[in-house]
């Protein structure tokens, strides 16, 4: 039984996901991952519905959703910029790249532009140390970044 029947909720899609995993608490990560794909983030309502179905308190589901950086509990921009904060990128000037992005978009890490286009985040190592400093925008990777280059890249979106 779903706790709420708010018609704005993606209930049919979510029900299909929950049915697939047969209410198993062990499948929480998979359920969260697929549920996030419905509209890009995990709202309180969605977390509550998952909690009800899986039989885990919402506080624990929220704990899992906020532990993993790829889960979102608030709406994000259409493009998520993930800038590497690991040591090799740091040594190769990631701070300057970050400063350029912050200046171009007027947001700080963890924030979203008012038009809902970009979200800026840190990420741990992307495995692109050979072309450090590096970042990703959604699924695309970018390396050998400089302040100028990152401005061009952002403006091309």
């Amino acid at each position: 039984m779903l706790a709420k029947t708010d018609c704005s909720l993606p209930t049919p899609k979510l029900s299909a996901i929950l049915d697939k995993y047969k209410k198993s608490p062990g499948s929480l990560l998979e359920i969260l991952r697929e549920a996030q794909a419905i509209n890009g983030y995990l709202s309180r309502e969605i977390l509550q519905l998952i909690a009800e179905e899986v039989g885990v308190p919402e506080s624990k589901v929220y704990g899992v959703a906020t532990f993993y950086s790829l889960f979102k509990t608030a709406p994000t921009g259409r493009y998520i910029i993930r800038i590497c904060e690991s040591a090799p990128c740091h040594i190769r000037g990631a701070q300057d790249v970050l400063a350029a992005i912050e200046k171009t978009l007027a947001i700080k890490p963890g924030e979203t532009t008012p038009d809902g286009k970009f979200t800026l985040e840190f990420t741990s190592c992307l495995g692109l140390c050979g072309v450090a400093p590096a970042m990703m925008i959604n699924d695309q990777v970018f390396g050998n970044l400089t302040g100028d280059r990152v401005r061009e890249i952002i403006n091309s979106f």
Binding site: R44, L47, P57, S59, G63, S69
Partner: peptide
């Protein structure tokens, strides 16, 4: 069996908090 609070967030930001913070 209330489950009002649980660990949330990660690393230095970890807190024991209610769902949704």
């Amino acid at each position: 069996s209330v489950g009002a609070i649980a660990p949330g967030n990660r690393g230095i930001n970890t807190q024991i908090l209610p769902a949704g913070g």
